[in-house]
Amino acid sequence: MTLRSALGPEPGSKRSSLGHARGLGSTGHGSAHWYWERLTALALVPLTVWFIVQLLSGVAADYDSMAMWLTVPGNMVLMVLLTFFFFWHAWIAVAVVIEDYVHHDATKIGGIIALKFACILFGAFAVVSIILVGLGG
């Protein structure tokens, strides 16, 4: 859909209103963001509870405890998944907040692009860090 067509029929157009509207509606993917926000939330419920319990058991008290903890494959996998779902959830949800409160188009689009690059950069950095520590780096 072009921006021009979203604004309504061209001045002097012979097309009917219905003819103009046809094909401009839902692409059938309208609920995708809503769905993935919920799905990532569902995954984060057990993962965050697990993470808090782990922290309270003292795994982050010092470097050796943390390194030992991440050596366990199950812990490493769950930490990678936690990171993945944290950033995926933020990717969707923070974009919605920007869309709602930033009304200047260039700032809005720039903000969302910056958010998405930041999620990829920091998410990749966190996952690589977990794996390096877990493998004894």
Binding site: L70, T83, F86, A90, F122, F125, A126, V128, S129, V133
Partner: peptide, 16 residues
């Protein structure tokens, strides 16, 4: 929590 993600990444990065 989005700000907290920054702390989370800093903590993991420091370990690495």
């Amino acid at each position: 929590l989005a700000v907290g993600l920054g702390f989370f990444v800093y903590w993991l990065g420091a370990a690495a």
